[in-house]
């Protein structure tokens, strides 16, 4: 009996042990190290002079950094709103009891996630190209000329990036919402139908509230991932035109690896972390508020 109790007490730590070892080596101490160096001068990879908050002060005085923050927030908000609405819609339609071929739709919608980000960038460049692109060839069949250079437009370029991400992400997150939907009991809809609720009311009163846990989960995950937007604008615009697609991750990359200022780079990434956490907390608490308000 005594042995039994002991093992129950030790067991969780043993189960956690492999995780803790990996976590300590590959996350925790690198994080502590990089947090420290954001306050120090770095000399050949070794910490030398203490410089206090000066890195943080410098970056907040850099208009390019502020621009990168706005661009990133703009992208995160617009992309996530569009992507999530689309993903929920697709999931609801895909889950509809009256249609067949669901598996085929699901597989097709999921497939873009299989394309790696740099390749997505190259392919969309080929789709938008004015002379040899897909849009040109398509419209050309109807005698329409296509002349819009979307990646050269200060407003259009970010929207092109958003489009690429929506294309890649909505089918993937649709799978998460589908999972959430299948757990909603069919009887709820049946009784609602008897009460005379139409499809939209059913969606608002049953689907959406019951999807909330999954929604929050997707919001957190997708917010954090989309904060790190890098590959597509890096390959297609290098942040241009006029820094309109410059993201925080690009700023971080440029600071750390191109300007080789790792200590400042560390400061940038901690500002990024704070923003990411804040954004997830805000969006989640708004979700919770609106759901409790409705109840």
């Amino acid at each position: 009996m005594k042995v039994h109790i002991d093992s129950r007490r030790i067991a969780p730590y043993l189960f956690l042990l492999p995780f803790l070892i990996f976590f300590a080596i590959f996350r925790l101490w690198p994080i502590i190290w990089s947090f420290l160096i954001s306050f120090f001068q770095l000399d050949d990879g070794d910490i030398s002079g203490f410089i206090g908050m000066s890195n943080y002060i410098t970056i907040f005085h850099d208009p390019t950094f502020i621009k990168a923050i706005w661009n990133t927030l703009y992208f995160v908000v617009v992309y996530n709103v569009i992507m999530i609405i689309l993903a929920i819609m697709l999931a609801v339609f895909c889950n509809s009891s009256i249609i067949g071929g669901k598996k085929a739709y699901r597989a097709v919608f999921f497939s873009p996630i299989a394309m790696s980000l740099p390749v997505v960038a190259v392919v969309f460049d080929l789709i938008f190209a004015r002379n040899i692109g897909f849009i040109t060839s398509l419209l050309g069949m109807f005698g329409i000329e296509y002349n819009y250079r979307i990646f050269a437009s200060m407003t259009g370029a970010m929207w092109a990036v958003i489009l690429m991400r929506v294309w890649r992400g909505s089918g993937y997150y649709c799978a998460y919402f589908l999972a959430g939907l299948t757990s909603i009991p069919e009887e709820l809809y049946e009784s609602a139908m008897i009460d005379g609720a139409n499809a939209f009311q059913q969606f608002r009163k049953i689907t959406l509230p019951l999807l909330k846990p999954m929604l929050i989960f997707v919001i957190i995950m997708s917010t954090i991932l989309s904060f790190q937007l890098f590959d597509e604008p890096w390959i297609l615009t290098q942040g241009g035109p006029a820094n309109s697609t410059l993201t925080l991750q690009m700023y971080l990359y440029q600071t750390s690896f191109l300007k080789q200022d790792f200590s400042k780079g560390a400061a940038v990434s901690y500002v990024m972390t704070l923003l990411m956490l804040a954004a997830s907390i805000v969006s989640v608490s708004r979700q919770k508020e609106s759901s409790s308000g409705r109840k």
């Binding site: 991750q249 990434s269 972390t273 997830s280």
Partner: peptide, 8 residues
């Protein structure tokens, strides 16, 4: 989760 990988 929220700390960018680059920094590590």
């Amino acid at each position: 989760v929220a700390i960018p990988e680059i920094v590590t």
